[in-house]
Design a protein around this nucleic acid. Structure first.
Lengths: 220, 220
DNA sequence: ACCTGAACACCGTTCAAGT
DNA sequence: ACCTGAACACCGTTCAAGT
């Protein structure tokens, strides 16, 4: 005895590239990107691994799509903002996305591919700087500095020795064993273990923006 | 008929953890860390893959050893230096090591393990800052800022869209297709493609050191 | 003590076969 | 047009067997 209405079952919508990438992002958020495999992703979607190849070129295509989706989730800065506020908003928006999806910095490094969405983000920052009056050379310098700062903090956060359950333990056991020969780390251990990366990031962002502003004031 | 002296053959010295890691570093320098496998590494050493397990715990043990070796290759800053020069020397030394072994930033991100050699590097920087007169909180801020800057540039360099042979082409073909909607990237393309990351890094390092110095002068 | 072959459980991917 | 099972070439790793 069969029913016509099987809309109530879990897997209704047909497979698409979009749905596959969405599921991959969810899987990576939950289990980390290292655990992601075609077979597991297929199972997540109620399908065999080989079916995925009807909608994506290969696994790399999925990983690229995941990078794109994270960058697309960063809201564009509101256009009426002062360039300082625009940079703050763009920076914090990127940092938030990297915090929500820590695996993306791993993908950015390991794939070394320039994704369209990442270039769109870059274009936004370059526009802010150019409109603020920076020369081409200084706009490029500033982009490098801002991008490095953001990526650098995202990585510090993602690889924080004192984050996670087991890692905090690992850091403490290392301290109890090697602490004597590392007096400064020992003394600063509480600060290191309770590091608020978001605040550290914003502190550094202010330093950089101030530095850029003083450079701009030299010109006009 | 056998000879006692087989010192002339290629594989004389016995297998050790040290030799394995050394070979792994050389392999990664040449082929990239993604290509590294136990079987290939064994072949490189004239031995079956399974023999490696007599000297290392597992592949992760090798990867950790590779991280250690890169950090150990960074020379400690000369002790008599002014703190600004000491930071410059430590920063440039780290950047040079990351340039010579671009795969290490990949390992740092993907493994998220805190290695003893990396902590020794951290201890050096903390000592410089503390000796210069920074408070504990500011020493921690400064470490975060300097480390983020260094890691960030290393990654920008390792994933540079205009580096390598095929990637430069990829960036140019992307430009010819999407350049119209990205006027700032198009205008700055020559700067982007000829970016001297080492110089960009040092430019940013000076900005950071100046910012730190002004913070220090507020105190005394 | 150290090395090895065979085996196991996993990969990404191809391809002929199904509907 | 889309999904599948079997297969291929590769992983990391274990283990009993060799010397």
């Amino acid at each position: 005895m069969t029913y016509d209405v099987d809309m109530t079952t879990e897997t209704r919508s047909p497979l698409t590239r979009e749905r596959i990438i969405e599921a991959a992002v969810g899987f990576a958020d939950e289990h980390g990107v290292a655990e992601l495999s075609m077979r597991k992703l297929g199972a997540e979607l109620g399908v065999e691994a080989m079916s995925l190849y009807n909608h994506v070129a290969d696994k790399g295509d999925i990983l690229d799509g995941m990078i794109d989706q994270v960058f697309l989730s960063m809201p564009p800065p509101e256009p009426q903002l002062d360039w300082r506020d625009a940079l703050r908003q763009a920076g914090v928006g990127a940092m938030n996305a990297f915090t929500a999806h820590p695996w993306v910095v791993n993908l950015l490094v390991s794939r070394a591919s320039t994704r369209a969405a990442a270039l769109a983000y870059m274009e936004r920052i370059l526009a802010i700087l150019t409109d603020a009056g920076f020369s081409d050379a200084d706009t490029h310098h500033a982009w490098q500095l801002l991008a490095s700062h953001t990526i650098g903090y995202a990585i510090q956060q993602a690889t924080n020795p004192a984050a996670g359950d087991s890692d905090a333990n690992a850091f403490e056991t290392w301290l109890s064993r090697a602490g004597n020969s590392h007096p400064n780390i020992t003394r600063l251990a509480p600060l290191i273990m309770n590091c608020q990366f978001g605040r550290e990031y914003e502190f550094g962002l202010e330093v950089i923006i101030d530095g850029l502003a003083s450079r701009l004031s030299l010109i006009d």
